Amino acid sequence: SEYETMLTEIMSMGYERERVVAALRASYNNPHRAVEYLLTGIPG
């Protein structure tokens, strides 16, 4: 799925699956924002 592709691409940058899933959830599946959250911390 498109979601799995995003997940895999972000994980390939060296992040753990659960952190990527949390970041995508926080960003409403916006991959650019999710990466930003992984770099700066997930808000909330």
Results as ranks from 00 to 15, higher is better:
S1M: 13
S1G: 11
S1R: 11
S1P: 13
S1W: 13
S1D: 13
S1Y: 12
S1L: 13
S1F: 12
S1V: 13
E2M: 11
E2H: 12
E2F: 11
E2Y: 12
E2G: 10
E2L: 12
E2A: 13
E2V: 11
E2S: 12
E2P: 10
Y3L: 06
Y3D: 04
Y3T: 04
Y3M: 06
Y3Q: 04
Y3I: 06
Y3F: 10
Y3N: 04
Y3A: 04
E4R: 07
E4Q: 10
E4P: 03
E4G: 06
E4I: 11
E4C: 07
E4Y: 11
T5C: 09
T5R: 15
T5W: 11
T5Q: 14
T5E: 12
T5N: 13
T5H: 12
T5A: 14
T5I: 14
T5S: 13
T5Y: 12
T5F: 11
M6E: 02
M6K: 04
M6A: 06
M6R: 04
M6V: 08
M6H: 06
M6S: 05
M6W: 11
L7N: 00
L7S: 01
L7D: 00
L7I: 15
L7G: 00
L7H: 01
L7Y: 02
T8N: 14
T8H: 14
T8G: 09
T8A: 15
T8F: 14
T8K: 15
T8L: 15
T8E: 14
T8R: 15
T8S: 14
E9F: 14
E9S: 12
E9V: 12
E9T: 12
E9K: 11
E9L: 14
E9H: 13
E9G: 08
E9N: 12
E9I: 13
E9D: 10
E9P: 01
I10G: 01
I10F: 07
I10H: 01
I10V: 03
I10M: 07
I10E: 00
I10A: 02
I10T: 01
I10R: 00
I10K: 01
M11A: 04
M11H: 02
M11S: 04
M11G: 02
M11K: 01
M11N: 01
M11E: 05
S12A: 15
S12C: 06
S12Y: 06
S12K: 14
S12T: 08
S12Q: 12
S12V: 06
S12H: 08
S12G: 11
M13E: 03
M13A: 05
M13F: 06
M13D: 02
M13P: 01
M13W: 06
M13G: 04
M13C: 05
M13Q: 07
G14P: 01
G14L: 03
G14I: 03
G14A: 02
G14R: 02
G14Q: 02
G14S: 02
G14T: 01
G14E: 02
Y15E: 02
Y15H: 06
Y15M: 03
Y15A: 01
Y15L: 02
Y15D: 01
Y15S: 02
Y15F: 15
Y15C: 01
Y15T: 01
E16L: 06
E16A: 09
E16C: 07
E16G: 07
E16T: 12
E16M: 05
E16S: 13
E16D: 13
E16V: 07
R17P: 05
R17H: 06
R17I: 06
R17F: 10
R17G: 03
R17D: 03
E18H: 10
E18A: 10
E18C: 07
E18R: 05
E18I: 07
E18D: 14
E18Y: 08
E18L: 06
E18W: 12
R19L: 15
R19F: 10
R19Q: 15
R19I: 13
R19D: 15
R19E: 15
R19P: 07
R19H: 13
R19W: 09
R19A: 15
R19Y: 10
V20W: 03
V20Q: 00
V20G: 01
V20P: 00
V20K: 00
V20D: 01
V20F: 03
V20S: 02
V20I: 05
V20A: 08
V20E: 00
V20N: 00
V20R: 00
V20L: 02
V21E: 14
V21K: 08
V21W: 04
V21Q: 08
V21H: 05
V21Y: 04
V21N: 04
V21M: 10
V21P: 00
A22E: 14
A22D: 10
A22R: 08
A22W: 07
A22L: 09
A22P: 01
A22G: 05
A22M: 08
A22Q: 11
A22K: 07
A23Q: 01
A23R: 00
A23C: 04
A23P: 00
A23I: 02
A23L: 02
A23E: 01
A23V: 04
A23H: 01
L24V: 02
L24M: 08
L24A: 00
L24G: 00
L24T: 00
L24P: 00
L24D: 00
L24E: 00
L24S: 00
L24K: 00
R25S: 10
R25N: 11
R25K: 15
R25W: 08
R25I: 12
R25L: 14
R25E: 14
R25D: 09
R25T: 09
R25A: 15
A26S: 05
A26D: 06
A26V: 09
A26M: 09
A26Y: 08
A26H: 08
A26Q: 08
S27W: 04
S27K: 02
S27M: 06
S27H: 06
S27L: 03
S27Y: 05
S27E: 04
S27R: 01
S27Q: 03
S27T: 10
Y28Q: 15
Y28D: 15
Y28T: 07
Y28A: 15
Y28F: 14
Y28W: 10
Y28P: 04
Y28H: 15
N29W: 13
N29P: 04
N29Y: 11
N29I: 03
N29E: 05
N29L: 08
N29S: 05
N29T: 03
N29A: 05
N29H: 07
N29V: 04
N30K: 05
N30Q: 08
N30I: 07
N30M: 05
N30H: 06
N30G: 01
N30A: 04
P31E: 05
P31K: 13
P31R: 09
P31C: 08
P31Q: 09
P31A: 09
P31L: 13
P31S: 06
H32C: 09
H32I: 15
H32D: 14
H32P: 06
H32V: 15
H32T: 14
H32Q: 15
H32S: 13
H32K: 14
H32A: 14
H32L: 15
H32Y: 12
R33D: 08
R33W: 10
R33I: 15
R33L: 15
R33S: 07
R33Q: 13
R33A: 10
R33N: 07
R33G: 06
A34S: 02
A34F: 03
A34G: 02
A34L: 04
A34C: 04
A34Q: 01
A34R: 00
A34P: 01
A34V: 03
V35K: 09
V35S: 03
V35R: 07
V35Q: 06
V35T: 05
V35C: 07
V35F: 07
V35W: 06
E36T: 07
E36A: 10
E36F: 13
E36D: 08
E36S: 06
E36P: 00
E36Y: 14
E36K: 07
E36N: 06
Y37W: 09
Y37H: 05
Y37K: 04
Y37N: 03
Y37P: 00
Y37R: 04
L38W: 02
L38N: 00
L38M: 04
L38T: 00
L38A: 01
L38S: 00
L38K: 00
L39M: 14
L39Q: 14
L39P: 00
L39Y: 05
L39T: 10
L39R: 14
L39V: 10
L39D: 07
T40E: 10
T40R: 10
T40N: 15
T40G: 11
T40F: 13
T40P: 03
T40D: 09
T40H: 15
T40K: 11
T40L: 12
G41I: 10
G41P: 06
G41W: 12
G41R: 08
G41F: 12
G41A: 10
G41K: 08
G41Y: 12
G41V: 10
G41C: 08
G41M: 11
I42M: 12
I42F: 14
I42E: 11
I42W: 12
I42C: 06
I42V: 10
I42L: 13
I42Q: 09
I42A: 09
P43D: 10
P43H: 09
P43Q: 09
P43M: 11
P43G: 09
P43R: 07
P43Y: 09
P43S: 09
P43N: 09
P43V: 10
G44H: 13
G44F: 11
G44I: 13
G44P: 14
G44E: 13
G44C: 07
G44W: 12
G44Y: 10
G44L: 13
G44R: 08
G44S: 12
G44N: 13
G44A: 13
G44V: 13
G44K: 10
G44T: 13
